[in-house]
């Protein structure tokens, strides 16, 4: 049994308490490994590394498999597709979303960083760009750039419309990891919100957006 007493710090800033637990845990770990430290293992990375550009058709297939809706269009056709998807509903968009993507006359609230959660939640649709998309898994990654916005924007509205250019499509997870910047807040999205909690069967639609539209732009 554990007989020594380790007073828990009453406040997190209390350095003496936190410091002693830190030393205690690190000391235990050093003792556990002993003098004869196991040699750091060489990691065999014989798996497939970054493969470069991904197949947009494979991305579309995998997105559809997890019940995202895929639309193919040209850069000039983005606004028309969005107009059809909005069907008169109001949207919230990140500060840097290109104006040309939005249909004229659409009801759009642009996030200036000061919108409240309630204001964002009140919109039916959010429209963003993406940082990278992974063909092998049907995944879109957002990195909170100005055309994607802070993370809450793509969380509260029930419909997420995401514009992906085919030159953003990479083959595999290692490609995405190589391209992404770890210091940014990252959200990996693979299909609409879902759960496997009822009889281990995937069901779409819990807390995140229940509908995901992806525009694949060539």
């Amino acid at each position: 049994m554990n007989n020594h007493s380790t007073p828990a710090p009453l406040r997190p800033e209390d350095d003496s308490g936190a410091g002693s637990s830190r030393d205690l845990v690190l000391g235990r770990l050093r003792a556990a490994l002993g003098d004869q430290r196991p040699a750091p293992a060489e990691v065999p990375r014989a798996y497939q590394g970054p493969a470069g550009a991904g197949d947009a058709h494979r991305l579309a297939e995998n997105l559809a498999d997890y019940h995202a809706t895929v639309h193919h269009c040209s850069t000039g056709g983005i606004a028309a597709v969005i107009d059809r998807l909005l069907a008169g509903r109001a949207a919230v968009v990140p500060p840097g979303l290109p104006e040309g993507w939005l249909p004229p006359g659409a009801t759009v609230l642009r996030d200036d960083g000061h919108l409240t959660h309630a204001q964002i939640a009140a919109k039916d649709v959010v429209i963003t760009a993406a940082a990278v998309a992974i063909a092998a898994t049907g995944t879109i990654v957002l990195d909170a750039s100005l055309d994607q916005g802070r993370r809450v924007l793509t969380l509260l509205p029930d419909v997420h419309v995401c514009i992906v250019h085919t030159d953003q499509v990479v083959a595999s997870v290692p490609d995405a990891i190589a391209r992404l910047e770890p210091g940014r807040p990252l959200t990996w999205i693979s299909g609409p919100s879902a759960t496997s909690d009822i009889e281990l069967d995937r069901v779409e639609g819990v807390h995140g957006p229940r509908t995901l539209h992806v525009l694949l732009v060539t």
Binding site: P185, S193, A194
Partner: peptide, 12 residues
């Protein structure tokens, strides 16, 4: 048993 789970969040 999914190619990727619906959401992964990474923060620093």
């Amino acid at each position: 048993g999914e190619r990727m789970n619906p959401y992964t969040t990474m923060w620093t």
